[in-house]
Each structure stands twice: as C-alpha cells, then as structure tokens.
C-alpha cells in the first residue's frame, strides 16, 4: 500500500465482486417481489392493445 496506484488497483480488484453480488441480489428481489408481478404482466400486455392514440 505504498502508492495510490496499488490502493486503486486493490480497490478495483476487490470491489467488483461485492458490487456484482449486491447488484444481482437487488435486481432479483425487485424482479421477483410478489406485488410487482401484476405490474409486469400488465406491461407485457400493454403494448398489444389500446395504443392507438395519445391519452391527453
């Protein structure tokens, strides 16, 4: 740890792992959160109907 370079490299090498795990967990929780299910189903269907004009 005698130079900023080594510090930076160390941060780079360790940080990514935890960041990756935390992010995957966050995304999975969001995606599988039970109350979000209806929202996603609706969104998937939404493009197939009723978009003939802006809502105004």
């Amino acid at each position: 740890m005698d130079s900023p370079h080594d510090t930076l490299v160390l941060v780079s090498k360790t940080f990514g792992l935890f960041y990756l795990i935390a992010l995957s967990v966050a995304v999975l929780v969001y995606v599988y959160w039970p109350s979000n299910r209806r929202k996603f189903d609706r969104a998937a269907q939404a493009i197939l109907q009723g978009e003939d004009k802006p809502w105004r």
């Binding site: 930076l8 780079s12 960041y19």
Partner: peptide
Amino acid sequence: GIGSIGGLVEIAPLFTIDQT
C-alpha cells in the same frame, strides 16, 4: 451509476500507472 463503475474501475488505475 451502474454503467459507469465498470469503466471507472478499469481505467482509473491506469492514470496512476506511471508509478509502476
């Protein structure tokens, strides 16, 4: 936020590389 971190982690250390 999520997009910039990967690049930052790889590029930032290269700017101090002249020490090594």
